[in-house]
Write a protein that binds this DNA or RNA. Sequence first.
DNA 1: TGTCGTGATGTGTACGTTCACATGCTGCGA
DNA 2: TCGCAGCATGTGAACGTACACATCACGACA
Lengths: 335, 335
Amino acid sequence: MEPEKVRAPNIRDVARLAGVSYQTVSRVLNESPNIRPSTKERVLEVIDELGYQPNQAARTLVTNRSRTIGVLSGDTAHYGPTTSVHAIEIAARQSGYRVMITNTTSDYDSIRAGLDFLRQQAVEAIVIIAPQVRVFDAIADMNLTIPFVTLDSTQRDTHRSVSVDQFRGGRLATRHLIDLGHREIEHLAGPQDWIEADARMRGFLHEIGDAELATRPPILGDWTAAFGHHAGRELLRHPDFTAVFCANDQMALGLIHALHEEGVRVPQDVSVVGFDDIPDAAHFWPPLTTVRQDFAEIGRRSLAIILDEVLGSSDASHEQVVPELVVRASTAPPQ
Amino acid sequence: MEPEKVRAPNIRDVARLAGVSYQTVSRVLNESPNIRPSTKERVLEVIDELGYQPNQAARTLVTNRSRTIGVLSGDTAHYGPTTSVHAIEIAARQSGYRVMITNTTSDYDSIRAGLDFLRQQAVEAIVIIAPQVRVFDAIADMNLTIPFVTLDSTQRDTHRSVSVDQFRGGRLATRHLIDLGHREIEHLAGPQDWIEADARMRGFLHEIGDAELATRPPILGDWTAAFGHHAGRELLRHPDFTAVFCANDQMALGLIHALHEEGVRVPQDVSVVGFDDIPDAAHFWPPLTTVRQDFAEIGRRSLAIILDEVLGSSDASHEQVVPELVVRASTAPPQ
DNA sequence: TGTCGTGATGTGTACGTTCACATGCTGCGA
DNA sequence: TCGCAGCATGTGAACGTACACATCACGACA
C-alpha cells in the first residue's frame, strides 16, 4: 500500500477554512493594507494550523519575480569567495531576498550552464564571483538581460562591479619590500586568466619600474601551497633574490616551507609577502606580512549595488575597496 | 520612454513558428519517443532561433518536480564543507540534477529559514552539511517530508547519513601519539554542539582510557587558528604535556604558532596532530601529521544515497567512510 | 473490404498564485 | 434623504507548462 499522496494545502484550502475568498488570503500573504484586523488574524490562524506554505513556483510564474538573487561562484573552495558569499547572504536576508548559489568549474560550458540555471530560476539579479576572463564570453554570448554585478575589477562599462583594488594591493606589497631596501624581488603570480592575478602582477611591475629595478619575469602559479612549495625549490637553485611577493597567502605558505627546508631563514635571508590575509596567515611561522582584502565588504556592497539596479537605478558604477598592508614578521630589511 | 517589456518566448510562440501544436513542442522538450525526426528538427531550430528557454516555475508548478537538490550548509567557509558541496554539484550534474545551495548561520531561526526556502523552491531532496545538533530540532519541528541526508555521523534512524568515521579518526590520532610513547596528551576539541567535534573527542577519550593514561579534560575550542594560538599560550603556563591532539588543522596551526613563540620545538619537545588534512597542512612548519577525511567522497556518496531515495528505495542507511592517518613531521617520540 | 493496432499530433484542463476589475457595505456631507 | 467616496471583499482571467485523452492517417491482417 502506497501512502496516499497528500496534496499540500493551497490558498483555497486556507480560504475555505477561514470562511473568506482566496483573494483575501492572498492579500494577507502580501500584506495588503486594506484588510480588517480580525479577518487577517483568522486567516493567519488557519495558515498556521494547516502548516500552509506559499507555492513559490506559482508565485514566480505569475509575478515573474522570485525575490531571489543568484550567485555564480567559481569551483574552488577559496577563503575569499566563500567569505563574500556569506556576506551577500546576510545582506540579502536583511533586504527580504534570498540567495541561490551555483558553483561552476572554470570551463565555458559549465559557466554557461550555471548562468542558464540561474536564469531559469528567475533570479532577479546575479552576482558573479567567478573571476575568470572566460565568464565574460559566456555573458556576452547569451546576452543576459538580468542585472548583474561582478566582484572583480574589469573596467568594462557593460555592467557594474565592486572589487578590491588589486593593482593598488600589488603596489602596496611591492613598495613595502622596496622601502625595506630590497632590490632583488621575485613575484609568484596567480593564473593568467584570473583578472585579479593579472592586476596584482601589474601592480608589482609598476612599482618595480618606478624604482628602476631590474624586472624579473613573474612565475605563474595556481594559488596552491603545493605550487608555492614547488616554485620555492626552483627559485633556490639560483638564490639571487632577497624577497618574494606571492599573489596569495597559500602560495606564500608553500614557498616558506621550501625556504625552511633548505635552511633559508625568513625574514633574515629572504622576506616574503602574501596577499589576502586569510585568518591563518597571522599564525604561519613566521606570521605573514600580507595585503588584506575585505571580502565581506565587497560582498555587502555588491548586493547593495545590484538591488539598487533592480529597483531602478541605472548608472553602471565601478566601486573599489582599498586594500591594506598588514605588516607581520615575514619581512625585514635585507642583510 | 521605457523600453518595452518584452515577454520571453513561450512554448506557444515556438509552436506557432514551427507550425505545430504546443503539445508537440512540449514533447520535443521532454524527449518523448513518438515524434517524427523532421518535426523534432524543425522545432529545435525554432527554439534555437528564438532563444527559447523553458520556464522552470511553470514546469515545477505542474509537475511538482524541480530536478533540483537542495544543500543546506553551515555559515563558515571551512575547507571540508565547500569541498563536499563541490563534489555534490558535479555528481548532481552528471545525474541531470542541479544543486541549490543555501547557507545558514547556526541559530535555530536561520536553519529553519534555510529549510523553508529550500522547501518552497520545491527541491526534491536536501543534503544537510550543517553539522550542528540544532539542525535536528529544526527538522523535527517542521516535519520535513522531503528526503534528506546528513553529512555527519548521528546514528538516528529517522534519516540517511554519510560521514567520515570521526570516532575512529579521533582514535587513530590518539593511538599514533600513544604508540610513539607519549603519556601526557592534551586534546584541543571543537565546539561541543558540533557532532563531529564530539565524536573526535570520544575517540580521544576512548584511546586514553584503553591505554590507562590519566584523563585530562579536553579544551573546547572554536576551530580557528586564533583559538589554537590562545590555547597554546594557556597550556604553556603548565607545560606538563608532551603531545597535543587538535580537532582540526587550523587550531593545530595556531597552537604550533604559540609553541614556536615560546621556543618550544615541534616535534622534539611537543608533538602535534591535527585533523582534516587541509591542503595547506602539508606545508605548515613543521608539516603537520593529521587525519585525512575524504570530503569529496562523502559528498559524492551523499548524492548517490539521496537520489536512490528519490527514486524509490527506502532503507535508511548510515554509511561511513574510513579516515586515514597521515604522518608528517609534527610528531615524534617524546625526548 | 472492413477492423484494429499504432504512431504522430492536437485539444482541454489543471497546477497555485496574483492582477485587474467588480461588487457590497458603511458613513459622511450636502 | 440621497449620492458618493472609500474600505473590505469577491470574481474572472492569466502566467507557461505537462498530463490525460481525443483524433487522424496508415498499414497489417483476416
